[in-house]
């Protein structure tokens, strides 16, 4: 049996054990308190019947099925399908991330190729890089005055640094002999950038882009919790206010899966540009 098959079997086993343990942990009944029936009406089932407020796997699975079969319904601002909320989040991440690509890669090329610019911009990068992207939120809301655009800006600012730093590093460390080949062939600087430096630095640039998409997806949830209105982050917060732990768990699961898909897309892209030496 191949190692991947055996690993798959173990994975399924771990999942099964987890689901069973979860089911057992949430199906038991606790102590039931005696109370006034009027008061009991106000309390949840966990107080009156000793049921756990934490949903079991079957409950979560059932609501997940509902979400999956009807992901795009829209019953007003506070009740939209999971698909719609995800689409909002992905669109925001996509817009902010694309802006970051457009800024980080040319700027990274500049920093990587010019020692002067590298040293001149270094203090700014060093100071701006460690700032939590959410710290920009008030400033963004004040200047942009649009909550959705502010979220895009926060995505931009958090995904720009890994791409910028990796691009600069990749460009600066292109093997000297490859550049010498281009020089002895009298290749112009623009053509050299596209035919030697870009392919040589592409794996490093893609690594930066992969780190960035991961961070962007982490940040969007927090940003949408603050900004509100739409998006998967808002959905989580809204369901918490509704005390629907089931929906919160569903959202967590979906966030994880989308994050994994985004990461895998970038991993595939990185594989395409990687060259064995």
């Amino acid at each position: 049996m191949s190692i991947s098959f055996r690993a798959g079997v173990v994975s399924v086993l771990i999942l099964a054990i987890f689901l069973v343990a979860w089911h057992i942990a949430t199906s038991g009944t606790g102590a039931v308190q005696q109370m006034d029936p009027e008061y009991a009406k106000l309390m949840g089932l966990n107080a009156t019947q000793g049921k756990s407020a934490m949903p079991g796997p079957l409950q979560v699975g059932a609501t997940l099925w509902q979400h999956l079969t009807n992901p795009f319904y829209d019953n007003g601002p506070n009740d939209k399908g999971l698909g719609i909320q995800l689409a909002y989040s992905i669109a925001r991440v996509g817009a902010g991330y694309l802006l970051a690509v457009l800024v980080a890669i040319p700027l990274g090329f500049l920093i990587g190729m010019s020692q002067l610019m590298s040293r001149a911009l270094d203090p700014f990068i060093q100071v701006l890089k460690p700032i939590s992207p959410l710290a920009w939120m008030p400033l963004a809301l004040y200047t942009i005055k649009d909550s959705s655009l502010s979220a895009i800006f926060v995505i931009f600012i958090c995904s720009v640094w890994p791409m910028l730093i990796n691009t600069a590093f990749g460009v600066a460390t292109v093997r000297k002999e490859w550049l010498n080949v281009a020089r002895t062939l009298e290749v112009g600087s623009l053509k050299r950038a596209f035919t030697v430096i870009l392919p040589a630095a592409a794996p490093t640039i893609l690594t930066g882009m992969r780190i960035s998409i991961g961070i962007a997806w982490l940040v969007i949830v927090a940003a949408e919790m603050l900004v509100g209105g739409t998006g998967i982050g808002y959905f989580v917060w809204n369901e918490w206010n509704n005390l629907s732990i089931t929906n919160v768990i569903n959202a967590i699961l979906v966030i994880g899966i989308v994050g994994m898909v985004l990461d895998q897309i970038l991993a595939r892209a990185a594989k395409l540009v990687t060259y064995p030496e």
Binding site: E177, V181, P199, A200
Partner: peptide, 10 residues
């Protein structure tokens, strides 16, 4: 002709 051949690996 470079000592390390200097071929573009991609």
């Amino acid at each position: 002709i470079f000592q390390s051949h200097a071929l573009l690996p991609w």
